[in-house]
Amino acid sequence: MVEEFTCYAGADVPGLLLAGSFGASLYFMTKKNVKLGKATVITIGGLVAGAVVGSAVENWLQVDIVPFLGIHSPAAVVSEIIIISQFLVSLYLR
């Protein structure tokens, strides 16, 4: 008798957070009367800048080896930096 084990990893929480921040950034920028195309380009720029800075911070902190403030996942560090950059982009850029 062969038993099969199914592994369910759960939801992709950092990806869900990034999708939510992307949508929120677009929403708030269009509320400030920025056209959707321009808002999309600015939001993608903030996403890329946050990913670059987040990767540099994660390489510096090495949270997978030594946890920092209870964060063990490198993806969580990068996604948090991206969320902060999305917030700053939607708050200050027009």
Results as ranks from 00 to 15, higher is better:
Met1Asp: 10
Glu3His: 13
Phe5Asp: 06
Gly10Tyr: 08
Ala11Pro: 06
Val13Asp: 07
Gly15Ser: 12
Gly15Gln: 11
Leu16Tyr: 08
Leu17Glu: 06
Leu18Arg: 10
Ser21Gln: 04
Ser21Thr: 06
Phe22Ser: 01
Ser25Ala: 15
Leu26Asn: 03
Tyr27Pro: 00
Phe28His: 08
Phe28Cys: 04
Phe28Gly: 01
Met29Leu: 09
Met29Tyr: 03
Met29Gln: 03
Thr30Asp: 05
Asn33His: 10
Val34Cys: 00
Lys35Leu: 00
Leu36Thr: 15
Leu36Asp: 11
Gly37Tyr: 01
Gly37Cys: 00
Lys38Arg: 13
Lys38Asp: 14
Ala39Val: 00
Ala39Phe: 00
Thr40Lys: 00
Val41Phe: 04
Val41Ile: 11
Ile42Thr: 03
Ile42Leu: 03
Thr43Gly: 01
Gly45Thr: 01
Val48Ala: 15
Val48Thr: 15
Ala49Thr: 08
Ala51Lys: 09
Val52Tyr: 10
Val52Gly: 06
Val53Lys: 08
Gly54Leu: 03
Ser55Val: 09
Ser55Ala: 14
Glu58Gly: 13
Glu58Ser: 14
Asn59Glu: 12
Asn59Phe: 15
Trp60Pro: 04
Trp60Tyr: 10
Val63Ser: 10
Asp64Pro: 05
Ile65Val: 13
Ile65Gln: 12
Phe68His: 07
Phe68Ala: 07
Leu69Pro: 05
Gly70Tyr: 03
His72Met: 09
Val77Ala: 09
Ser79Met: 11
Ser79Ala: 15
Ile81Met: 14
Ile83Ala: 11
Ser85Val: 04
Ser85Pro: 05
Gln86Tyr: 05
Gln86Ala: 04
Gln86Arg: 06
Gln86His: 13
Phe87Glu: 06
Ser90Glu: 01
Leu93Gln: 02
